[in-house]
């Protein structure tokens, strides 16, 4: 599944995986985290978030389970798996080169 041409599009995956590397979280939490940490620069649309989460789940990079939150609500939380962690490392190093590459291309003109 992990083709290098996906890398540009894989930014969302990277953000999700990175967020989950800190602690398991639910979809809402992930979105909030990304928004907060990026100081509002990145806002994740639910329309992209949930399909991405379910795709990662199918590819076994994350595992989902239902829990009871502290205020008594049921939430589906996602947790990074072993292969998810590996994928995150790959994606991070990939991202480095991609962002360098993109920066060079942008500067060139």
């Amino acid at each position: 599944m992990a083709r290098s041409s996906d890398t540009l599009l894989g930014a969302l995956d990277l953000l999700i995986l990175k967020t989950l590397a800190r602690a398991p979280n639910h979809g809402f939490g992930i979105a909030q985290h990304i928004q907060t940490v990026s100081e509002g620069l990145l806002r994740v649309e639910e329309g992209s978030l949930y399909p991405a989460l379910h795709r990662l789940e199918r590819d076994k990079f994350v595992k989902a389970s239902w829990i009871q939150t502290e205020n008594g609500r049921r939430a589906r939380i996602y947790k990074l798996t072993g292969s998810g962690r590996q994928r995150l490392e790959e994606a991070e190093s990939n991202w480095d080169s991609v962002s360098k590459g993109v920066t060079r291309v942008l500067r060139f003109v």
């Binding site: 639910h26 979809g27 809402f28 639910e46 949930y50 379910h54 609500r73 049921r74 939430a75 589906r76």
Partner: peptide
């Protein structure tokens, strides 16, 4: 059903 519930849960959190 599961996805629908997940969406509901998301909405509830934002409403909170």
């Amino acid at each position: 059903a599961e996805i629908a519930e997940e969406i509901q849960s998301h909405l509830a959190m934002r409403a909170h």
